[in-house]
């Protein structure tokens, strides 16, 4: 029978080295920013491709989206870090592999948000635009996307939150971001409880503003509709 000792928590130790953890946030934020930017732009292209009436455009886009949505993000990271070099002959640095995988992942999810948002715009708006003689692209830019955006913005904020949490998985392929640094720190100092609690709080402080923003946006748009 193991004897249970009451924990003597040493949070002071963690806070004494908090600069180490905060510095590591830099890579976490960089990964987050790159993947989010790529996801928002790439997702638009893929989302439009999925809506294309041409099958040879729409189907590969669907395949891509389904592939990335139906596999774990860890598998994606590992594949781009360990498997891709074998077939491409180029070993990506861990950060690049993680950024690439997370960007492709975010693009797949964002594509669905764009697609859903665009499809939610009533058919009457398309007809009204066409009746004015607008081309497809102009119609999309001037009428459809501005209308769709109110449905999409809360979903994008939500996606940004999921993405931020996913960046921590990059620690498993040795990207020296916050989670990786935390593991290193905790194993060197034997204070995992304190370290991971503080790290969880740091993540929470990074991420929660986005969640609060999405609540505010949802309320804002809900009020606008009423």
């Amino acid at each position: 029978m193991p004897t249970i000792t009451m924990p003597e928590l040493q949070f002071g130790e963690v806070f004494a080295n908090i600069d180490l953890l905060l510095e590591a946030c830099g890579l976490t934020l960089a990964l987050w920013a790159v993947a989010l930017a790529a996801g928002l732009s790439g997702g638009l292209l893929v989302g439009l491709a999925r809506l294309s009436p041409r099958r040879w455009i729409a189907w590969p886009a669907r395949g891509y989206v389904e592939l990335f949505r139906n596999t774990p993000v860890l598998v994606q990271l590992i594949w781009f870090y360990y498997a891709l070099p074998v077939v491409s002959g180029i070993q990506l640095p861990a950060f690049a592999a993680a950024a690439l995988a997370l960007s492709l992942n975010a693009s797949a999810y964002c594509a669905e948000i764009y697609r859903g948002g665009i499809q939610s715009v009533a058919a009457g708006q398309w007809e009204a635009g066409r009746a004015l003689g607008m081309g497809r692209l102009r119609l999309l830019r001037r009428i459809i996307l501005p209308l769709a955006v109110r449905r999409m913005v809360p979903a994008f904020t939500n996606r940004a939150v999921e993405l931020a949490k996913n960046t921590s998985v990059a620690s498993i392929i040795t990207v020296h971001e916050l989670m990786y640094t935390a593991r290193l720190f905790s194993s060197q100092n034997y204070i995992p409880m304190e370290t991971f609690t503080v790290v969880a709080m740091i993540y929470f402080l990074l991420i929660y503003p986005f969640t609060l923003a999405s609540y505010a946006l949802e309320r804002h748009f809900a009020a606008g509709r009423a």
Binding site: P2, T3, I4, T5, M6, P7, L9, V161, A164, K165, N166, T167, S168, V169, S171, I172, M179, A182, R183, S186, Y190, P192, M193, E194, T195, F196, T197, V199, A200, Y203, F204, I207, Y208, T211
Partner: peptide, 23 residues
Amino acid sequence: RNTPPLVHFFWFFYGLPMAFGLT
């Protein structure tokens, strides 16, 4: 909902048990 699951995996595997001298 606003923290990465990986942190909680480590917290429950290393953090909690070690604080109580368990595995």
